[in-house]
Structures are given as C-alpha cells and as structure tokens.
Design a protein around this nucleic acid. Structure first.
Length: 411
DNA sequence: ATTAGGG
DNA sequence: CCCTAAT
C-alpha cells in the first residue's frame, strides 16, 4: 500500500520533470493575475481580492511567485532585454508565443534562480492538506495543478499554453472586478493565513515521510514546525564547522541555514528537553534548505544566508505597510508573511528601509538608468508603480531617520 | 517581546 | 542580513 503510493508518486514526478516549461509553468499565470490585481487595487481601499482568497492555496507555491515577478515585469512594460521583446502588451505583443516569452525570461537574470522541474519536486501547500495529506499529498497537488493543463488538449502543449496565456491576459487586463471585493476583517485574514501556512513540511513527503508526520502533528501556528530543534548550536560550534570544511558550498548553505532557523523563533515553544536530533532534518527545514538561494560562492561567506526578495514579496510588504503602517512589522509579518518562515519582522523592516533608499535613488537616476541600462548592469529597477507607492507611503508614514530626505522631494 | 539604528 | 541598544 505504502509502496504503491510511493511508486505512483515517483512516476508522477517523473512525468512532471518531462513536462515542457511552457506546460507546467502555466498554472502560475492565473495566480499572477490575482497578485497583480491585488497590487493594482488601491491600497487604502479593500485590496484583498476574492480571487486571492480563492486561490490562496496556489499562491503559496514559491514557483508561482517566481513567475509572478516576470509577469509583473510585463505589466510594467519592462524590457525583456535578452529576448528582444520590447513589451508584452505592445502591438506586436499579441503575437508572441508563450514559449518565446519564457525564453526571454529565462535569459533574463531577473529572479530566475531556480530550475523549474526542481520546483515541482517540492510542493508546499496549505496546512489543511497536512492532516489528510500525509500519505498522498504530492499526488494530489501535482495532479491538480497539472491535470488542468493537460486536459484541454493533451496532444498539443503549445496550444494549451497559448490559450492559458490569453486567459491570464484577459484576466489581468480587466482590473474592474477587483475593486468591489469584500474587505476581509482582520480575523479573516488571520484565518486565511493560518490555514495558509505554506512553509509546512510538505516539501517532500516522498523523501521524509515519517518526519513530516512527526512534526506536523504539533503544527498549529507557524512556529511549531521547529519543535524538533531543541537547542541552538552555539556560535562557536557553527563557526567551527564552517572553518573545518571550507571546501564545499554544502557548508556554505547548510550551516547558515540552520542558524537562520534559530533566529526569529528563539525560545517560544522550545522545551527544555534536550535530545539531539540534528541528523533529523524536518521537512520544513529541508524545504528551507532546498530553497536557499544559490549564488556565487564568494557571496557565501559574507552574508551568512540570504534570500532574494521577489517582486511579489515586495508588493506584499508594501501592501502590508499601507494597511498597518510603518513600524508594525510584527503584525505585518504575522498577517501577510505567516507563510514565510524566513522573513522575520526585522527582515521586513530592513527591506522597507532598503526600498525607501532605492526608490528615492531610482527617482533621481531614472533617466540615467534607462540610458545606461545595458543588460550587463545587474541593477534591476523596481517597477515604477511600486516605486510610486513606496514613495507615497514614505510621505504618509515617515520612516525615522530617512523621512527627511523624502519630504522635500517631489516626484 | 519588539523596534530602531548601525554595521 | 546580523547585532545591539532601547523600550
């Protein structure tokens, strides 16, 4: 029985990996539509769209977020420099094939640091599944997200992709319905997020089945996942480790990853008991580790660990600040980033601080950037709408120590 | 426990 | 991102 499921799963995954990019990447498109709508909606009015609620499960998938960034970029008329595409919704844009677009995207260095097939091997979904999903989770997820794609025209992936693209486009173009959405109360949002905790140990039911179970049992909030970890390794220990094996990036990733997990959720639930379970990597940790950014080895030693912010995240953050105001980072974290085990409130604040800095700088250099914007320059500017909102918020909720530089600035 | 500031 | 002081 168990083996049956496993083999089924494996087969399923095999199928997935054979999928073409344009096929299995498509589910993210609709999602993106909701995200964009969400963003486009006026911050002060209700902007949690019904779509978002309905789709919140899908939204949890990190891979979707990745795609969102690109699609956001399209919305802002960004240039896909290497693809030779000017902007998707231009006149000629209508004729673009989805795969062409994706090709351009793949060449672009914008936030595409993860291979697609890999992403599907680490499905993370809402915890609601968690209970019933211990044995057959991955199957359900994969099937639901892929079957829909294959269904319409199983013979021709291209065609399917094309159609879906239109679905997406039409959806995000008509931003009308978004505005009249019901604004969820705080409680609603809370509920949503609680059941929405996407960093749940579903990363790889296949790989660490038992462990998932053990750590899921206690799961209720977003912090309980770490229960396995009883004791924080001493800093010396960590340093020792990284010094002893200067060799592989394995160390570069692993050590920081662990220390990262300690931060943010220090003692809350951690009992005094101590039995070392270091060898046991909980699913969430596995996922965490798995998703850890891959970058040059040189950067590894400087920043212990870092995860690049996606556009979607930035937008979410800006929205959160618009709602709750600057300074209430714990609230924002709990309500909007409950699904992200990383991104501590401090991270949010840091990000905001950086956003302020960069967006003001971007205003200054706007013209210069467009001229000098040879693809070589790794600086990818924020979409103007985002910058706009950031600056607006900056004036409304002045950030200590930085606000002065903004107030006398007119944009 | 959280936040502001600085590194 | 990390750390610390202050609240």
């Amino acid at each position: 029985m168990e083996t049956d499921r496993k083999s089924h799963l494996i087969k399923k995954l095999g199928d997935v990996k054979c999928q073409r990019v344009d096929e299995y990447v498509v589910p993210g498109l609709e999602d993106e539509a909701t995200e964009i709508e969400h963003f486009l909606a006026e911050p002060k009015t209700g902007h949690v769209s019904v779509d978002e609620i309905l789709c919140f499960e899908k939204e949890n998938l990190e891979r979707h977020l990745k795609m969102e960034d690109y699609l956001c970029a399209f919305d802002y008329g960004w240039k896909i420099s290497s693809g030779g595409l000017d902007c998707i919704h231009g006149q000629g844009g209508e004729d673009l094939k989805l795969e062409e677009v994706l090709d351009g995207l793949l060449d672009d260095d914008f936030l595409l640091d993860t291979e697609f097939p890999e992403k599907f091997s680490e499905p993370d979904v809402g915890p609601r599944e968690v209970s019933s999903l211990e044995s057959n989770s991955a199957c359900g997820i994969l099937e639901s997200s892929i079957a829909t794609i294959r269904e319409p025209n199983s013979k021709n992936g291209k065609r399917v992709g094309f159609d879906l693209r239109h679905t997406f486009r039409s959806k995000y173009r008509s931003r009308g319905p978004v505005t009249d959405t019901v604004r969820p109360t705080r409680e609603h949002v809370q509920d949503l997020d609680v059941s929405n905790n996407d960093e749940k140990p579903l990363a790889s039911p296949i790989l660490s089945n038992q462990k998932v179970k053990s750590s899921v049992k206690v799961t209720k909030g977003d912090t309980l996942l770490r229960q396995k970890r009883q004791r924080k390794p001493t800093r010396r220990y960590i340093e020792e480790l990284s010094r002893n094996s200067t060799t592989e990036n394995i160390k570069c990733r692993k050590v920081p990853s662990e220390s990262r997990l300690w931060r943010g959720r220090p003692k809350k639930i951690v009992p005094k008991l101590e039995f070392e379970s270091d060898s046991e990597l909980s699913a969430s940790e596995f996922e965490d580790e798995h998703k850890r950014t891959k970058r040059s080895k040189t950067a590894c030693d400087r920043r212990k660990h870092q995860r690049t912010w996606t556009l979607a995240e930035v937008i979410k953050l800006v929205d959160g600040i618009a709602q709750y105001g600057v300074g209430r980072w714990t609230d924002i974290k709990k309500l909007l980033f409950a699904s992200s085990a990383y991104r501590t409130p401090i991270d949010l604040r840091d990000k905001w601080r950086n956003l302020l800095r960069s967006s003001s700088a971007q205003i200054d250099n706007q013209r210069e950037l467009q001229v000098v914007n040879k693809p070589k320059h790794p600086v990818r500017p924020l979409p103007k709408p985002v910058v706009r909102r950031i600056l607006e918020l900056a004036t409304i909720h002045p950030y200590p120590k930085l606000s002065s530089s903004f107030l006398h600035r007119n944009y």
